[in-house]
Amino acid sequence: MTEPRPPFRAHLPHLRRAFAVWRRNTAVWHKLLVPSLLANFGEPLLYLLAFGYGFGALVHRVGGLPYITFLATGIACSSAMNAASFEALYSTYTRMEPQKTWEGIHATPLGIPDIVLGELLWAGTKGLINALAILLVALALGLVAPAGALWALPVLFLSGLCFAALALVATAFARGYDFFTYYFTLVLTPLLLVSGVFFPLASLPQPVRLGARLLPLTHVVSLVRPLLIGQSPPHPLTDLAVLTVYTLLAGAGALVLFVRRFER
């Protein structure tokens, strides 16, 4: 991604100021805790049970694991992606445009970079919360190893940040909600299907398999699935490096794009 250099200097965000935005969003989430958690647990749980037991009765073992375990470890990753993306698209846009929450915050010492970082951290947190919900269900069903689940948490938070940053780039361009449908259909759904969440990469054609290695969700799954079943990931440094690079590039891009959007 090459950004044309803006005619101004986007100042670096301050973590303390960004944290005020994170706390604002956390407080709103906390007010709506019960319906929010129901949604967090509800849908993935249904998928897990229906496909895990229904489909699992047909295929038994996938990638050396019982299918329901394979699926639970995959869904933990995809739910981090979905929740972070949804938050950074729809909810961030709502606060930015119709609700004018950003405008109110921008009258205070906070600058756009501070607000964007706050939104990024919050959407990443939201991804972690949703993944955690799946992990709790998987733990209760005895599908994953408790120690491994603990190790997976920081990785899932990083995944949340990564997908939040990518989604924020889209939000910075958005002029309405319709735009986000494209993002889900053209970006997130293909990612979900080729990154080893529902079936192993090995079953895909060679070119797709190679292409999938460039995609962030593949690396999340490659890290998180082994961790959750108590094994070491095969190439953790590569996976972490890819996710970090995606997060930093998309995060910086989003920052510049939002500053441009607001400075005019």
């Binding site: 303390r16 100021r17 005020a20 935005v21 706390r23 604002r24 407080a27 709103v28 007010k31 609700q99 004018k100 929450t101 405008e103 109110g104 915050i105 009258a107 205070t108 010492p109 906070l110």
Partner: peptide, 28 residues
Amino acid sequence: LGVVGQSDNLDPDFNVEENLYHYARYYG
């Protein structure tokens, strides 16, 4: 500075006092 903008940008996710409460945080 204190700013009262032209458009209503109060935080609809909060009640009256919470609007003051969270706004104070933005000023550190």
